[in-house]
């Protein structure tokens, strides 16, 4: 069958979500941010909540997230997205509010805001992109950097005696009574991407049901920071990140 016969409007099975803008993303080739943006857009589209969703953008690579999704956004100071999201949700309880943060934002400078927002059980969704380094500023060591993992500020690998231990903040947050849904996913294969989408959908549905804080961690790659091709970075993630950051639900109440 000729391709021209297949490429017709009635045979369409997948196209870019209408919630995504036409602006070209500034992310490096193969960046997981793009996939997660797309999944959030699709979830918002499918739930029909585009008009009442407010995102809180972080500082980090995703700082320009407000350019890529056709929803309302608020930019927060570094690490303060959960605090800003708290304020937005309390003032506008009918809106769907989510924060979108990287590991330098959520697990380093914003640890206090993150823990207290989760402990208070703020009715928000937190999306946490964990790639183990500070990708935007040049791949420096982050609290989430693995033991022995090389970064620009630990070129011989992270040494716990000197640099401290990697932080599993998601496990820490799962213990707090305020969180209702804490889960860890990834985007290295199409199946994993579909699972992540389901988790995001569930997190937004929890917010509709006023269940408390939902945290979706996405273990991600940073091919530029890790100095690998995107495909190799995925393999490296499966081999090294997943043993320390195992995928699956940590809490579902």
């Amino acid at each position: 069958m000729d391709i021209k016969e297949i490429v017709k409007e009635e045979n369409l099975v997948y196209k870019k979500s209408m919630v995504l803008t036409d602006k070209e993303m500034h992310y490096c080739p193969g960046c997981t941010h793009g996939v997660v943006h797309k999944l959030i857009a699709e979830v918002i589209d499918e739930m029909g909540i585009q008009e009442k969703t407010i995102g809180v953008a972080p500082v980090g690579c995703a700082v320009f997230a407000y350019d890529y999704l056709h929803i309302d956004w608020q930019e927060a100071a570094h690490g303060r997205a959960p605090a800003v999201a708290t304020g937005v949700k309390r003032l506008l309880p009918d809106k769907m509010v989510f924060s979108y943060q990287g590991d330098g934002d959520l697990a380093a400078i914003g640890t206090a805001e993150t823990i207290h927002a989760c402990n208070r059980g703020e009715n928000i969704v937190m999306v946490f992109i964990n790639n183990g380094i500070y990708g935007m500023t040049g791949g420096q060591m982050a609290p989430t950097t693995l033991k022995g993992m090389k970064a620009s500020t630990c070129p011989f690998g992270r040494e716990p005696q000197q640099d401290g231990n990697p932080l599993k903040i998601t496990e820490l947050l799962a213990q707090l009574p305020g969180t209702s849904y804490v889960t860890r996913h990834s985007c290295h294969t199409a199946a994993a991407v579909r699972k992540t989408k389901k988790a995001l959908r569930k997190a937004f549905e929890n917010q509709q049901q006023k269940k408390g804080t939902s945290l979706v961690e996405v273990v991600s790659t940073c091919s530029s920071g890790w100095k690998m091709t995107p495909a190799k970075a995925n393999d490296w993630m499966v081999e090294n990140m997943f043993p320390f950051y195992p995928l699956g639900d940590l809490k579902d109440e």
């Binding site: 017709k8 045979n11 369409l12 995504l20 997981t32 996939v35 797309k38 199409a190």
Partner: peptide
């Protein structure tokens, strides 16, 4: 898996 949503499927 496309991070830039470049692909349309029929």
């Amino acid at each position: 898996v496309c991070p830039d949503s470049c692909i349309t499927v029929y």
